[in-house]
Amino acid sequence: DIIVVALYDYEAIHHEDLSFQKGDQMVVLEESGEWWKARSLATRKEGYIPSNYVARVDS
C-alpha cells in the first residue's frame, strides 16, 4: 500500500472529497492526475485528496 502523510489541513469542497488535518496518514487507493482517492487511517473514510497536499511515507 502507498501511505501518505498530510502536509497541510484540507477542508473538503465537494461531497466526494476527504477532509484531513496536517499529520494525518492515508492509504492511496487510486492515483489519477492531481486528485487521488484515499482512505484515512484514523477515520477509515474514503474520498478524493489533492495530491500536492500530501507526501509519501517511506516504509
Results as ranks from 00 to 15, higher is better:
residue 1 D to Q: 14
residue 1 D to L: 14
residue 1 D to A: 13
residue 1 D to V: 14
residue 1 D to G: 14
residue 1 D to H: 14
residue 2 I to V: 13
residue 2 I to H: 12
residue 2 I to G: 06
residue 3 I to C: 08
residue 3 I to Q: 05
residue 3 I to F: 08
residue 4 V to I: 09
residue 4 V to Q: 01
residue 4 V to K: 01
residue 4 V to T: 02
residue 4 V to H: 05
residue 5 V to A: 05
residue 5 V to Y: 10
residue 5 V to F: 08
residue 5 V to Q: 07
residue 5 V to W: 06
residue 5 V to H: 05
residue 6 A to I: 01
residue 6 A to W: 01
residue 6 A to E: 00
residue 6 A to V: 01
residue 6 A to Q: 00
residue 6 A to C: 07
residue 6 A to L: 01
residue 6 A to T: 02
residue 7 L to H: 03
residue 7 L to V: 06
residue 7 L to D: 01
residue 7 L to E: 03
residue 7 L to N: 03
residue 7 L to M: 08
residue 7 L to S: 02
residue 7 L to T: 03
residue 8 Y to S: 07
residue 8 Y to V: 08
residue 8 Y to Q: 10
residue 8 Y to E: 08
residue 8 Y to F: 12
residue 8 Y to P: 00
residue 8 Y to C: 15
residue 9 D to T: 09
residue 9 D to R: 04
residue 9 D to M: 04
residue 10 Y to M: 03
residue 10 Y to C: 05
residue 10 Y to V: 02
residue 10 Y to K: 03
residue 11 E to R: 10
residue 11 E to Q: 12
residue 11 E to I: 15
residue 11 E to D: 12
residue 11 E to K: 12
residue 11 E to C: 12
residue 12 A to Q: 05
residue 12 A to M: 04
residue 12 A to K: 06
residue 12 A to C: 04
residue 13 I to Q: 13
residue 13 I to L: 12
residue 13 I to V: 13
residue 13 I to E: 11
residue 14 H to W: 10
residue 14 H to Y: 10
residue 14 H to L: 07
residue 14 H to D: 09
residue 14 H to V: 05
residue 14 H to F: 08
residue 14 H to Q: 08
residue 15 H to D: 15
residue 15 H to L: 14
residue 15 H to K: 13
residue 15 H to R: 13
residue 15 H to T: 13
residue 15 H to P: 15
residue 16 E to H: 15
residue 16 E to V: 08
residue 17 D to T: 08
residue 17 D to M: 14
residue 17 D to G: 15
residue 17 D to K: 08
residue 17 D to C: 14
residue 17 D to P: 02
residue 17 D to I: 07
residue 17 D to R: 09
residue 18 L to P: 01
residue 18 L to H: 02
residue 18 L to D: 00
residue 19 S to V: 03
residue 19 S to E: 06
residue 19 S to K: 04
residue 19 S to M: 04
residue 19 S to H: 04
residue 19 S to D: 06
residue 20 F to Q: 00
residue 20 F to S: 00
residue 20 F to G: 01
residue 20 F to V: 03
residue 20 F to M: 05
residue 20 F to H: 01
residue 20 F to I: 03
residue 21 Q to E: 08
residue 21 Q to D: 06
residue 21 Q to I: 10
residue 21 Q to R: 15
residue 21 Q to C: 14
residue 21 Q to M: 11
residue 22 K to R: 10
residue 22 K to D: 02
residue 22 K to Y: 05
residue 23 G to A: 03
residue 23 G to I: 00
residue 23 G to C: 08
residue 23 G to H: 04
residue 23 G to R: 02
residue 23 G to S: 03
residue 23 G to D: 06
residue 23 G to N: 05
residue 24 D to Q: 07
residue 24 D to T: 05
residue 24 D to I: 02
residue 24 D to P: 00
residue 24 D to F: 02
residue 24 D to K: 01
residue 25 Q to V: 15
residue 25 Q to I: 15
residue 25 Q to W: 15
residue 25 Q to M: 15
residue 25 Q to G: 04
residue 25 Q to S: 08
residue 26 M to V: 01
residue 26 M to N: 00
residue 26 M to P: 00
residue 26 M to S: 00
residue 26 M to D: 00
residue 26 M to L: 13
residue 27 V to G: 03
residue 28 V to H: 00
residue 28 V to E: 00
residue 28 V to R: 01
residue 28 V to M: 04
residue 28 V to P: 01
residue 29 L to Q: 05
residue 29 L to Y: 07
residue 29 L to G: 02
residue 30 E to S: 11
residue 30 E to A: 09
residue 30 E to H: 10
residue 31 E to M: 15
residue 31 E to N: 15
residue 32 S to G: 14
residue 32 S to T: 12
residue 32 S to W: 12
residue 32 S to N: 13
residue 32 S to D: 12
residue 33 G to K: 05
residue 33 G to H: 05
residue 33 G to E: 06
residue 33 G to S: 06
residue 33 G to T: 06
residue 33 G to C: 09
residue 34 E to T: 14
residue 34 E to L: 14
residue 34 E to G: 10
residue 34 E to D: 14
residue 34 E to W: 15
residue 34 E to A: 12
residue 34 E to H: 15
residue 34 E to M: 14
residue 34 E to K: 12
residue 35 W to E: 04
residue 35 W to L: 07
residue 35 W to S: 06
residue 35 W to V: 07
residue 35 W to Q: 07
residue 36 W to D: 02
residue 36 W to P: 04
residue 36 W to G: 02
residue 36 W to Q: 04
residue 36 W to T: 08
residue 37 K to C: 12
residue 37 K to L: 15
residue 37 K to V: 09
residue 38 A to F: 01
residue 38 A to R: 00
residue 39 R to L: 09
residue 39 R to G: 03
residue 39 R to W: 08
residue 39 R to C: 09
residue 39 R to E: 04
residue 40 S to C: 11
residue 40 S to R: 06
residue 40 S to G: 05
residue 40 S to I: 13
residue 40 S to L: 15
residue 40 S to Y: 04
residue 40 S to N: 13
residue 41 L to P: 04
residue 41 L to V: 11
residue 41 L to N: 05
residue 42 A to E: 12
residue 42 A to T: 12
residue 42 A to Y: 07
residue 42 A to S: 12
residue 43 T to V: 03
residue 43 T to K: 04
residue 43 T to Q: 05
residue 43 T to C: 05
residue 43 T to W: 03
residue 44 R to Q: 15
residue 44 R to C: 15
residue 44 R to M: 15
residue 45 K to N: 09
residue 45 K to T: 07
residue 45 K to L: 12
residue 45 K to Q: 13
residue 46 E to N: 04
residue 46 E to I: 11
residue 46 E to L: 07
residue 46 E to G: 03
residue 46 E to S: 09
residue 46 E to Q: 08
residue 46 E to T: 12
residue 46 E to R: 04
residue 47 G to A: 01
residue 47 G to R: 00
residue 47 G to L: 01
residue 47 G to H: 00
residue 47 G to P: 00
residue 48 Y to D: 03
residue 48 Y to P: 00
residue 48 Y to M: 13
residue 48 Y to V: 06
residue 49 I to D: 01
residue 49 I to Q: 00
residue 49 I to E: 01
residue 50 P to H: 07
residue 50 P to M: 07
residue 50 P to A: 03
residue 51 S to G: 08
residue 51 S to K: 14
residue 51 S to I: 08
residue 51 S to L: 06
residue 52 N to C: 14
residue 53 Y to E: 02
residue 53 Y to A: 11
residue 53 Y to F: 11
residue 53 Y to M: 13
residue 54 V to N: 00
residue 54 V to K: 01
residue 54 V to H: 01
residue 54 V to R: 00
residue 54 V to D: 00
residue 55 A to V: 14
residue 55 A to W: 08
residue 55 A to H: 08
residue 55 A to D: 08
residue 56 R to Q: 08
residue 56 R to A: 08
residue 56 R to H: 10
residue 56 R to P: 10
residue 56 R to K: 13
residue 56 R to D: 04
residue 57 V to M: 11
residue 57 V to W: 09
residue 57 V to N: 06
residue 57 V to C: 11
residue 57 V to H: 07
residue 58 D to P: 11
residue 58 D to E: 12
residue 58 D to V: 12
residue 58 D to H: 12
residue 58 D to Q: 11
residue 59 S to Y: 11
residue 59 S to I: 12
